[in-house]
Amino acid sequence: MEVKWGSIKGRFSHRAHLKRLAAFQKRQLKKKVEQWVLPTEWEKALAGFQASGFSWQSETKSGRGVILYCSMCHNATLIQFFQSKSAAAGKIPLEVLGSFQDHRKDGQTLWAVFDIRAVVPAYFKLVDYRFEPGNYELAFEHRGQKIFLYRWAPASILLGERDLKQFAEAISDFSAGDPVPVNMDGGQAVELSSSPRLKWLSRFKPKPCFHWLGLWHLEKKNRILGVKMQGKRPFDTHMLDRVCVGYESL
């Protein structure tokens, strides 16, 4: 089985994409791709999508697939099932297609990278990332507001004799103010926030003036997680809480 997806800008044409796919397969892999009428069961399973089917055949293998387009999230997905000539099709494709989703219904996006999992509002787009041994960082942006997710490991070595507050102070990004120790699910955590005195003036400043930083120590997992938010406008605190609650290390 193969699944490929991508975001589409502008109008989506099933015919044009199938044509492009057929030309590529013919040129590169000497396979002939043809349009294929979807069975009623497949159509039912893919009720929420605009779907078109295709099939291909080579000397040893054959395949059937669908091109899906979701008008809600503007994502196009290609799902194809490979099949050797001797094997029967089975019910697996139907189960896969029936369970397929390309966006969540609650307006959030689940990000799962290596050992971190985070739920971030869908309108925040990923703008930067860094995966170095011991230090992961993801950055999201929406209308000048930024969310940064951090993960440090191994916490026992990074903290050493220090506590989380001292660790927060030692990190340049977190040294702008005085971190306040807080209790988070019985574990060690620190918070730091800053906002300008004259809030209306902040929109004229070139740099973001509202900052919120939170760090917490997952002792059992030997990790430190951190969320930073910055922007020119005040934050939606409920959203910030949701991001913190949904951010975890597996």
């Binding site: 290596f114 050992d115 041994p133 011991g134 490991a153 191994p154 026992s156 070595i157 997992k221 030997n222 990790r223």
Partner: peptide
């Protein structure tokens, strides 16, 4: 250090 294998490998 309870690290993922890939991270420790790098």
């Amino acid at each position: 250090h309870q690290l993922q294998h890939r991270e420790a490998e790098v």
